[in-house]
Simulated scan of single mutants.
Amino acid sequence: MPVPVEITRIAHSCLLIALGDDVFLTDPWFVDRPPIYRAGEPRALAAAELPPLTAVLVSHAHGDHCDLASLAASGRSSTTVVADPTVSSAAAAAGMTSFRSPDWWESVMIGGTRITAVPGRHGVPETTFVLSRAGTHVYFAGDSLYIPELDAIPQRIGPISVALLPTNGLRIRPLLDRKVVMDAEDAARLTAVLDPDVVVPHHYAFTSGRVADRLLTRKDRDPENYRRAATRLAPRTDVRILEPGVTTRVTPADRRIDSP
């Protein structure tokens, strides 16, 4: 039977995923970095308050997703980092001593969980991830765009139980309003393809500050726009919008094809 999963949102794209007795942290970010990087919401936990971690997943090297220095400073320098290859220098600079970077569609075993690297696309190189254990599959996209390669996830991995998707559709104004993160409609279309039991949206409260929000970036900070789109395009999926510090528990439907 699929194992239950618990998701706790800390802030932004930083979440705790408890899968069986394994606990994973995604895209750590514990310190604002003005003027550009501001969470726009309170953080539920400081790095020193985290529970014991099985591994840390890092999708890419931007400061709001790759705060490995805070983890190292909290005494977690030996925690395994599973990340896009471009994160290696940041991990080394922070003093993290265990680093894994599987190629896209390759997997590594950490604890009792299989972690599969999945394609992503952003303003810098990005990897997304699926965590799999006993028929439960959890997909985490840091702040990727919706790209065609993601449509292959159910066929290559199996039925997705929980998806953690960005929704703010971040655009860079000086780059002709170039979109670098999936927006609410994109995330809803991906939800329809993945057909998960539950989706937790993230990456929406982020702000660049009053001036930069007007001159540099444009974004959708309301996750309810995603809920409305997902209700229309993927009505089977339960959308759960979590405030920082809130935990949701999911007991996945037994729809598995293969168990890792």
Rank of each mutant, 00 (worst) to 15 (best):
M1F: 14
P4W: 06
V5N: 01
V5M: 02
V5I: 09
V5P: 04
E6K: 09
E6D: 13
I7H: 00
R9M: 01
I10E: 06
I10G: 04
H12Y: 06
S13V: 00
C14E: 13
L16T: 12
D21L: 11
D22F: 07
F24E: 01
T26G: 09
D27K: 06
F30W: 14
F30G: 02
I36R: 14
E41D: 08
P42V: 04
P42I: 01
R43N: 10
A44T: 00
L45C: 14
A48F: 08
E49Y: 03
E49G: 12
L50Q: 05
L50D: 03
P51N: 12
L53K: 15
L53Y: 01
T54D: 12
T54S: 11
L57R: 10
H60A: 12
A61D: 11
H62D: 10
H62A: 13
D67Y: 08
L68E: 03
L68G: 02
S70L: 08
S70Y: 01
S70A: 14
S74I: 13
G75N: 06
G75V: 11
R76L: 06
T79D: 08
A83N: 04
T86Q: 11
S88C: 13
A90Q: 04
A90F: 03
A91T: 07
G95C: 09
S98M: 15
S98A: 14
E106W: 07
S107C: 12
V108N: 14
G112P: 00
R114A: 09
R114F: 00
V118C: 00
V118E: 05
P119F: 09
G123H: 10
V124F: 06
V124C: 13
T127D: 04
L131I: 11
L131M: 12
G135R: 03
V138G: 04
S144M: 11
Y146N: 11
I147N: 07
L150Y: 03
I153H: 01
P154T: 08
I157Q: 04
I157G: 01
G158W: 03
S161T: 03
S161Q: 00
S161L: 08
S161R: 08
V162I: 05
A163S: 12
A163N: 00
L165R: 02
T167R: 07
L170C: 08
I172Q: 05
L175C: 13
V180T: 10
D183H: 09
A184Y: 07
A184C: 10
E185M: 11
D186C: 13
A187I: 05
L190I: 00
L190C: 07
T191H: 03
T191M: 01
T191S: 13
A192Q: 09
V193Q: 07
L194D: 07
P196Q: 09
P201N: 14
P201E: 10
Y204A: 02
T207W: 05
G209I: 00
G209Q: 07
V211K: 05
A212S: 15
D213G: 06
R214F: 15
R214L: 15
L215Q: 00
T217A: 09
D220Y: 05
N225C: 01
T231D: 07
R232W: 05
R232C: 12
P235D: 04
V239T: 04
R240P: 03
I241A: 02
I241S: 02
P244Y: 09
G245F: 12
G245L: 11
T247I: 06
T248R: 04
V250H: 01
P252W: 01
D254A: 14
R256E: 14
I257L: 11
I257T: 15
S259Y: 13
P260R: 10
